[in-house]
């Protein structure tokens, strides 16, 4: 239980923060809003993992829970996906969605930090009870925010990565970017599967999937920015 509820999420958090460091370092060198948003998204991912590990180590804390739900359950996928929107969409559309996401995030934060909580509801749900669960939120309507952010995040992050891989494959260029985007798409999907398995009562599924997701996305990012025996000119053509 200690491994599942403490070591897994803390490991996920550590990897996420390290990943964020490298992405933001690349942002400082190359600029590009997509890198900034991916870096912020991975910081959110790390905050989610940290709060899960904290909960496993110290037990219930309402502030920790609110941070977990806001950053880990609501915002992370959407902010990562917004980075991909900046990479693939026209700047005007990306800016529009960014404004909507920012306003939605502020609204979500106000609702989460103003919500009434009941930790006993986490153990009475279909979840295993060892993992954190949004069932602890009593105030109606707060949990309804999550699917909208996750739908947007899934479509843009996973769909965007798969679409990028498809584009590179069609042109038969930059194989490393193709492979990297496929890994990023797979890694981004893993936490969604973990949540589903968690609902079925499989203990540790959520935290394990989050860890694997962070690792696979990190490998994908590294693969995407590391050419495979290609010229620097080719890899410099497409900004990432």
């Amino acid at each position: 239980m200690e491994f599942t509820n403490i070591i897994l999420p803390f490991s996920s958090s550590l990897i996420s923060f390290v990943f964020a460091y490298f992405v933001l370092k690349r942002y400082l060198a190359r600029r590009g809003p997509h890198l900034l948003l991916w870096g912020i998204g991975m910081i959110f991912y790390g905050i989610g993992g940290f709060t899960e590990g904290y909960h496993g180590l110290f037990g219930w804390n309402p502030v920790i829970f609110r941070f977990w739900y806001l950053f880990g359950a609501i915002l992370v996928a959407a902010w990562l996906g917004q980075g991909t929107v900046y990479l693939l969409a026209r700047r005007r559309w990306a800016n529009t969605f960014m404004i909507l996401l920012a306003l939605g995030s502020i609204y979500g934060a106000l609702r989460v930090f103003g919500a009434e909580l009941d930790p006993s509801l986490m153990t009475t749900s279909v979840h295993t009870g060892s993992e954190m669960s949004g069932h602890a939120i009593v105030t109606p309507g707060v949990r309804l925010l999550t699917p909208f952010f996750n739908i947007y995040g899934t479509f843009t992050l996973v769909g965007g990565a798969a679409y990028s891989a498809w584009l590179f494959w069609r042109k038969r260029v930059l194989l490393h970017r193709t492979i990297g985007n496929l890994l990023i798409a797979v890694g981004a999907m893993l936490p969604a599967f973990g949540g589903t398995f968690s609902r079925m009562g499989i203990s540790g599924a959520l935290y394990l999937s989050e860890l694997l997701g962070a690792v696979v996305m990190f490998i994908g990012f590294w693969r995407a920015v590391t050419p495979i025996g290609e010229t620097d000119a080719q890899s410099a053509e497409v900004p990432v």
């Binding site: 996750n150 899934t154 479509f155 996973v158 798969a162 891989a165 498809w166 494959w169 496929l182 969604a192």
Partner: peptide
């Protein structure tokens, strides 16, 4: 492998989006 993986990912995304909705 690439077109197969993209197709699988597209199917999975669709399923996840339907579930989320």
């Amino acid at each position: 492998a690439v077109p197969v993986m993209v197709a699988v990912i597209a199917i999975v995304i669709t399923a996840l989006l339907v579930i989320a909705i």
